[in-house]
Simulated assay, not measured.
Amino acid sequence: MEKLISRKEAAKLLGISIATLDAARNSGLISYVQYVQNGCVYFTDAGLQEYIAKCTHRAKPVEKSATYRKLRSVRA
C-alpha cells in the first residue's frame, strides 16, 4: 500500500496553498482518499504526479512582432 500524504504535506510538496489544493480536489482535478464521509483527506504520490501532469502546459512560441499593432503599408 502506498504512503498516504496529508493535505498540509501535499500542499507543501506542490508549492500551493491548502485552499488551492481543496479547490482542485472539489473540481475533480486531483484524486484523493477519504475513508469516512467528512473525515480526513489524504493523497497518494501517484495522484499528485497526475495532478502535476494535468496542470503542466507547454510554453508557447514567441510571436514574430513585438507589438499587436499592424504595420503600415509603405506608400510610393
Rank of each mutant, 00 (worst) to 15 (best):
R69N: 04
K64E: 12
K60P: 01
S65F: 10
N26R: 15
I18Y: 04
E63N: 12
K12G: 02
T44H: 03
V33T: 14
L48M: 07
R72C: 11
R72A: 13
R69S: 02
T20G: 09
A53Q: 01
S17A: 08
S31F: 00
D45S: 00
Q34K: 14
C55F: 09
Y51L: 10
A46Q: 11
C55A: 11
G39R: 11
D22L: 13
A59I: 12
L29R: 14
I52F: 07
R69D: 00
L48E: 02
E9P: 03
E9K: 07
T44A: 03
A11V: 05
Y42R: 10
A53K: 03
T20Y: 09
Y35L: 11
C55K: 11
T67N: 04
T56N: 05
G28W: 02
A66G: 01
T44K: 05
T44S: 07
R72T: 11
L29A: 14
L29M: 14
C55Y: 07
A10W: 07
I30W: 04
Y42P: 08
F43E: 02
G47E: 01
Q34P: 08
N38R: 09
N38C: 06
L48N: 06
G47K: 02
T56V: 10
S73T: 08
K64H: 11
Q37L: 09
T44M: 06
Q34D: 10
C55D: 08
A53N: 00
L29D: 13
G39K: 13
L29V: 13
T20L: 11
C55R: 13
K54D: 00
T56P: 03
A53H: 05
Y68P: 04
V33Q: 11
K12M: 04
A46D: 10
L14K: 00
T56A: 09
A10R: 02
E50K: 08
